[in-house]
């Protein structure tokens, strides 16, 4: 496809992203001078040892997580919207996020329901991501099996929604039989959190994330052909089933790992692609994929900065902030443009 020049857009957004990255790191309950932050990030040492620890072990991992989560979820949303040719699609709609939540719910809430013999009393940092990914894959495999039976993408969307409600129902039942402590623990997880990841976890996160992103680059062509509908895509030589399965796999991988490490973060996947299309006025995935990734990262960095309530000691749940931010944006978009594109 011929590309209108979007170089200016991309340079502007990238500069903004880097700026926000530093702003994000400089914000927090302990105020650290900018000079010390830059020093530390460039491999030096800041004036206080505790500052170095705060920056390297807390703020930097958190900012990186925000970038991975924001860009990853936004790409998932874009892929879903193109695949289903439906502006309302997103990782949440397909039930993949709910699947991850189910995994976590079984782990946390299940321990009281099943008498705790299945799970030893302490829940380690590792078991959460693993069960969340398992849950995501479980629901996704069900969706893939269903997807290969029904040809109609609308039906798949509805099947995804049904799986979502199913898992929510199971979680409610589990919650009903659980003790207050566990419900609280689950609730805190479901608020979402970008912090608390060790460098080891970030490494695993980045590896899976990179696999997802690289795979996304290989399907730019089928994604563009999907813009004409399935019959045209097929007549252009695209293997529909294969492309569809790759898209579903990428989405599950990314959503699974993101939900596992940072909780179910709502709205980013749905809202960011729409915001991006408005800025870039194109549906060409060669432009959209990098644009959506950068904008997603930017938006999550902003949300995280807001969540920290600068200069205070409290941190609001990130999930609440993304919804508070995402819902009005989608409403505003619909009211203003009256038309919403895929």
């Amino acid at each position: 496809m011929k590309n209108k020049s979007y170089t200016k857009h991309f340079i502007l957004l990238s500069v903004f992203l880097i700026f926000l990255f530093f702003v994000n790191i400089s914000l927090g309950s302990v105020s650290i001078p900018l000079k010390d932050i830059l020093n530390t990030l460039l491999g030096g040492i800041s004036s206080k040892e505790s500052w170095t620890t705060i920056i390297l072990n807390f703020r930097l991992p958190k900012a990186i997580t925000a970038i991975l989560v924001g860009s990853g979820l936004s790409i998932c949303g874009l892929l879903m919207q193109t695949l289903f040719r439906n502006p309302l699609a997103g990782p949440f709609v397909l039930g993949i996020s709910s699947g991850a939540s189910l995994g976590v719910a079984i782990l946390i809430l299940g321990s009281s329901v099943f008498g705790g013999f299945l799970f030893t009393n302490s829940i380690s940092n590792w078991s959460l991501p693993i069960t969340a990914s398992l849950g995501a894959f479980l629901v996704l495999s069900a969706v893939i099996i269903a997807a290969n039976k029904v040809k109609n993408t609308m039906s798949i969307l509805i099947i995804g929604l049904m799986f979502g409600s199913l898992t929510s129902a199971v979680i409610s039942v589990l919650a009903y039989f659980s003790e207050a402590d566990q419900i609280q623990q689950y609730l805190f997880w479901s608020f979402g959190s970008l912090g608390n990841l060790s460098w080891n976890e970030i490494l695993i996160f980045s590896i899976i994330y990179s696999i997802g992103i690289l795979a996304t680059l290989t399907i730019i062509k089928p994604l563009n052909s999907f813009l004409l509908g399935e019959n045209y895509a097929k007549s252009l030589g695209i293997n529909i089933k294969k492309s569809r399965n790759i898209i579903l796999l990428i989405t599950s991988l990314l959503t699974g790992v993101i939900t596992a490490f940072s909780g179910p973060i709502a709205f980013v996947g749905l809202a960011v692609p729409h915001i991006t299309r408005m800025f870039f006025t194109t549906s060409n995935h060669k432009i959209l994929i990098p644009a959506v990734a950068i904008l997603g990262a930017i938006i999550l960095l902003i949300c995280d900065a807001i969540a920290q309530l600068p200069t205070s000691e409290f941190t609001l749940p990130i999930n609440a902030i993304t919804s508070l931010f995402g819902a009005p944006v989608v409403i505003w978009l619909l009211v203003r443009k009256k038309k919403i594109y895929v």
């Binding site: 052909s225 813009l227 004409l228 509908g229 030589g237 299309r277 194109t282 549906s283 038309k339 895929v342």
Partner: peptide
Amino acid sequence: PESQITVFELIALGRQ
């Protein structure tokens, strides 16, 4: 499907 592709891009898809 409703999307923001230009006439040129649409024709170029024929080259896929």
